[in-house]
Amino acid sequence: MSQSSSPDAAASPAAIVQRGSFELTLRRFAADKAGMLALGFIVLLVAFALGAGLIETWTGHSPVDQFRDTGLTPTGLPVGPGAEFLFGTDQLGRDVLVRLAYGARTSLVIGLVASLCASCIGITIGLIAGYVGGWTDVILGRAMDLVMSIPVLLCTLALVSVFGPSIMLSVAVIVFFSWTTIGRVIRGQVLSLREREFVQASRSLGAGPLSIMVVDILPNLTVPIIVYTTMMIPAGIVFEATLSFLGLGIVPPAPSWGGMLAEAAANSIYLVAWWLILIPGSVLLFTTLAFNILGDALRDALDPASRRRSRHNKSKGRQRKRGKEGRS
């Protein structure tokens, strides 16, 4: 900013710091303690899931092995946390720690795959509905409304009763019912972006619809895409766990968090073996909490204005488009 040939730039505003926006985002994120903590937890969780096999060999317990002599008390009750079983055993004498690690795999993969698929679908449909407009928008918008007004869990019950529980079905159901959230957000954003003058400028230069959607509009959607995709992961994990809890998700004996909790709930065994609910329950809770905190932290870091906007957006009133009296 030192030398400049432009009269406008003669007085360089001191406020502008020469730093890439990516670096700024990283700095803001790093300053967010809760966000960093959440990220740390997620990294640990991923390591835990990836290392499930290692844990298995280290403890010598397979996730489905039932240790009837060491893993159950003489009266047939599960054994609490101790040296042999770090997190205790369940009602069949299986190692909770190992099952938890393998369950983490299932949960993370389902959450990740489902939310990625859902956001791809949501982005595409939202982009098309918002940009093309007209009847396309009416039909796609109505389709989103339709999906949103379906009682999700009940329909899943119906599907499961016909096709039987499976991972594929769980993922498909999560994707089918969650793309609408991001689809709606994207559509709304595109609707307003489409009217922005830079899009009209591109159009007046002769850019085609695809070029405008990809080059002009998509880069402006990175913040909602990242934030909403992050927030969909915990929703997917919880949904899968809920299905398994109701006995409609992962088929036992394959380990899953929801299934572990369901087994703990059956016959109220968890009332005498607290670790059966508190350990998987809190891991599940902390996982969703971590992803939600991460989503919030990402939003704050990527779009710092969203925090302040409410307080300072009015000062630039005169810069807004004149003449249009309606609130747009």
Partner: peptide
């Protein structure tokens, strides 16, 4: 944050454990 993250069935089981049992 906690409310949004708490899976309903975990909350239910935890409430039963802590407030009933």
């Amino acid at each position: 944050l906690v409310g949004i993250s708490f899976p309903t069935f975990v909350l239910g089981m935890a409430s039963l454990y802590f407030l009933y049992f």
